[in-house]
Amino acid sequence: MEINVLLFGQLSESIGKSSLKLTGISTTDELKIRLQQQFPGLEKMTYSIAVNKQIIQKNTPLNSGDEVALLPPFSGG
């Protein structure tokens, strides 16, 4: 089962991509663990998670075809 992950700001810069497709992930906590394993710098970064365009506040189950966005804060003005 495949999900699409969208990355923004410093996250996409650090990781080097603005989106990735991942398989075999069934919750947002699992997603964080998988991404941190692949991209160790991610652990120190602050970001919010949205599933299908809705910000989630706790561990959320994921289904095939879901779109998950990782949103870091921006401070520039």
């Binding site: 410093q10 120190k44 602050t46 919010s48 910000i55 506040q57 949103l71 870091p72 804060p73 401070s75």
Partner: peptide, 21 residues
């Protein structure tokens, strides 16, 4: 704070003066 409850580490807080824009 519902979006970003806590500020990030200072070492990731860059301004336009730092990063350019």
């Amino acid at each position: 704070r519902d979006l970003f409850p806590n500020p990030p580490n200072p070492d990731s807080a860059f301004s336009c003066n730092d990063m350019g824009v």
